[in-house]
Amino acid sequence: MKLELLINQKIYALDVAPDEMLADTLRSKGFLSIRKGCDTSCCGLCTVWIDGKPVLSCTMLSFRVAGKAITTIEGIQPEAEKFARILAAEGSEQCGFCSPGFIMTVIAMKNELKNPTEQDIQHYLAGNLCRCTGYMGQMRAIKTYLRGEVQ
């Protein structure tokens, strides 16, 4: 199928199969921040934004996002870097494999929720798994980031 996808504000003319998932399309175009962790819609590693909302690119058919704005972490690098530095300072950036998806969800949450409580944060991030940390460092990093403190 021939279609145009708007990725990080740039238009890409693509030829995709009808069963191609967005994670594969994005990786084939060099967006290697997109990782496939579980491939069963559970881990959140492949999170991207569609029209600003976080979705699982491993579960989203590519043809369905034609005409919508796709954002990967490459498209929000300065903001992502700001939070990533806080994550690293809290020692919660270990193998780093889950970080791009995790960072995309945290920034989406910051854009969507006003003054989230710890419970709101846990609920919003329930779909992002990390097998290295115990989530405590990440929670500290998120709170620091939401308070607007620069590391």
């Binding site: 819609s41 909302k53 976080p54 979705v55 699982l56 969800t105 919003y124 779909g127 992002n128």
Partner: peptide, 12 residues
């Protein structure tokens, strides 16, 4: 529905 996996899954 809010108990089903994560925000990203529920958006799919």
């Amino acid at each position: 529905v809010s108990h089903i996996l994560g925000v990203q899954f529920r958006s799919c």
